[in-house]
Amino acid sequence: MGLLTELRSSISRVTSKLFAPDQGPKRIGIYGPPNAGKTTLANRIARDWTGDAIGPESHVPHETRRARRKENVEIERNGKSVTIDIVDTPGVTTKVDYKEFLEHDIEKEDAVRRSREATEGVAEAMHWLREDVDGVIYVLDSAADPFTQVNTMLIGIIESKDLPVLIFANKTDLEESSVQQIANAFPQHETVPLSALEGDNMDEVYDKIAEYFG
């Protein structure tokens, strides 16, 4: 299967790269560590502009284990419209342990399966980052420490690719939320506070999306 499939995928990769820039909307990847609220944000954006959700949200980490895409999300700002494809990616981490699922009343067998899928999901997210996104929305839980290896590494990769990136300090509805801490962690990028769950500050979110990815 190897050669043919490889060839086919190479060709499609090349052709998509040849034609993608001028055709179709930009593909914006929503990245971040697990449980930062990526899917909640993706659903919020998709619901606001298309009426459909992208995927299930959950408190259980790694709920999103496959990248999900919502195409042709048309966002209108100041009389102009920006059309993007949103890719909600699995949370990126350097370790996946089934035991963390056990804490969420998931049976071991299922937990191990989830763990495996989550691992594949991370690999998939990295794949999208490498080949398939034109811009990145990096979502962080503003109530959590942003100084992590994963955040540093991913932001570094994004910067190395010169991709436009917005840092979203999510979960501002939480008491412990500290947008400033997020902004301090990545001063070279614009940080936008929001609560995807509550829909707080979404206007600014859409303004920035239109500005950065339009």
Binding site: T94, K95, K99, T119
Partner: peptide, 12 residues
């Protein structure tokens, strides 16, 4: 089984 360590840079 069920425990993985990922080398993000390699994956990327």
């Amino acid at each position: 089984p069920g425990q993985y360590e990922l080398n993000l840079m390699e994956l990327y």
